Simulated assay, not measured.
Amino acid sequence: MTRAGIVTVVGRPNAGKSTLLNRLVGEKLAITSPKPQSTRKRIVGILTRDDAQLVVHDTPGLLHPRYALQKAMRSEALAALEDADVIAYLVDGSRGPVEPLQAVARLEAPPRAPVVTVINKADLLAPEARLQLAEANPSALFVSATTGDGMPALVDRLVSLLPESPFLYDAEDVSTQHLRFFVEELVRETALEQLEDEVPYSIACEVEEFREDRDPVYIRVVLFVERESQKHIVIGREGERIRQIGMVARTKVENLLGQRVYLDLWVKVLDNWRRNERSLKRFGFVLPEEPSS
């Protein structure tokens, strides 16, 4: 009998969750950035082998939310924990001792699903530091999502904990999400790479038009910012910055689609969208329900 189920990857921001998803699936699905909080929504990747199918959910980093967008991100991560058949709790090994998942996620009770503690960035650890972590966490697995070291053992451990089940998706599928979503994420990733300070955190992307019947494929994406001053920064002097973002993002999108692309980028202001419930719903975020008094 085959095994199949949801593997939820959780951890603090910048633990390497998105890099791990990409490594597991063998495709670049989740954007990666040294800037924290780059993952805002759940990203689904599918790894299928002869005996098992892992539906891997990459999640926003576990944090203490300060505004509405971060509340929605935390809610998404907690919902993914509830959906999990197995939890891969990813820890940045270079940051010292491993805190329990229940404490990091501020859960009232331990998760329902079995938890595999995965110590990432093992390639950065000195032998003595690795030994100390191994002694303190004897059941943990050491991996490097960047180099791939330790990944076969991790997959085997995750598969062993999945329920017996037929495959949930076609064996050729690598994700459940639409191309528009990945185009938006690639444009946002490029903005994260090229912009500094608070500006990249204030950007949301939305595909307004996607014409696959054209050659090149025509895609219009709007980058929303929160203030007029941010719009000027994103556009740059005489449009230089937005042109550079467009050139780099177009190459990424062409690699995704395997076709030539005309990427038409626009920049608009949506005041204070990260703190506005209506704006967040427009971008597909779900805010947690406030407890009744």
Rank of each mutant, 00 (worst) to 15 (best):
I6F: 12
V7E: 10
V7T: 10
T8G: 07
T8M: 03
V9L: 15
G11C: 04
A15C: 15
S18T: 13
S18H: 13
L20D: 01
N22G: 07
L24A: 11
K28M: 07
S33M: 08
K35H: 04
P36V: 03
S38H: 13
K41Q: 09
R42E: 05
V44Y: 02
I46D: 06
T48P: 07
R49I: 12
A52E: 06
A52H: 11
V55L: 06
H57D: 00
D58G: 08
T59F: 06
P60N: 09
P60M: 02
H64E: 11
A68I: 00
Q70N: 02
R74M: 14
S75C: 04
S75N: 15
E82T: 10
L90T: 12
V91Q: 05
S94N: 08
R95G: 02
E99L: 14
P100H: 08
V104W: 05
A109R: 12
R112F: 03
V116D: 09
V116M: 07
I119T: 05
L124I: 02
L125V: 01
L125W: 12
A126C: 00
A129K: 11
L131H: 08
L131E: 14
A134W: 06
N137Q: 13
A140Y: 08
L141K: 05
F142K: 07
M151E: 10
M151F: 08
M151T: 13
P152V: 09
P152M: 11
L154P: 04
R157W: 09
L158P: 04
V159P: 04
L162V: 09
P163R: 06
Y169H: 14
E172N: 13
E172W: 10
D173E: 15
T176H: 01
T176E: 14
V183L: 10
E184H: 00
V187G: 10
T190L: 04
L192G: 05
V199N: 01
Y201V: 05
S202P: 00
E206T: 00
R211E: 14
D213P: 00
P216R: 13
Y218D: 07
R220Y: 00
V221K: 02
L223R: 01
V225Q: 06
R227S: 08
E228P: 07
I235P: 01
E240P: 01
R243P: 02
I245N: 03
G246L: 06
V248S: 09
A249P: 09
K252Y: 07
V253A: 03
V253D: 09
G258H: 07
Q259L: 15
Y262K: 13
V267H: 02
V269R: 11
L270P: 01
R275S: 12
R278N: 11
R282D: 03
R282F: 03
F283R: 09
G284H: 03
F285D: 08
L287N: 06
L287M: 01
E289W: 04
E290C: 02
P291C: 05
P291L: 09
